[in-house]
């Protein structure tokens, strides 16, 4: 399975996990001050950041970026 496919699966999984219906009426206080509904979604934010770390590692559009910067490199070479 390619890196891009894994990222897409992870993103869809996060999209589903965002709908945490099991926490809807859960008023438990985590660490004595943070309602579960807030704690879960703060962790979700961390998970989102980790997903994008993987996305940059595995699905970075290297060829597109090189193509976009190509002329600039040529100009630099010409300038030199």
């Amino acid at each position: 399975m390619s890196g891009k496919s894994i990222i897409i699966i992870m993103a869809v999984a996060l999209g589903i996990l965002h709908q945490d219906f099991w926490n809807w009426d859960n008023g438990t206080l985590v660490f004595g001050f943070m309602p579960m509904g807030l704690f879960y979604h703060a962790c979700f934010s961390l998970a989102a950041a980790i997903l994008w770390v993987f996305a940059i590692k595995c699905a970075w559009p290297t060829k597109l970026v090189e193509w976009a910067e190509q002329d600039e490199d040529n100009e630099r070479i010409k300038g030199a």
């Binding site: 999209g15 965002h18 703060a42 950041a49």
Partner: peptide, 8 residues
């Protein structure tokens, strides 16, 4: 949290 995922 949805913005964190979707904005990025």
């Amino acid at each position: 949290s949805s913005s964190g995922l979707i904005h990025a």
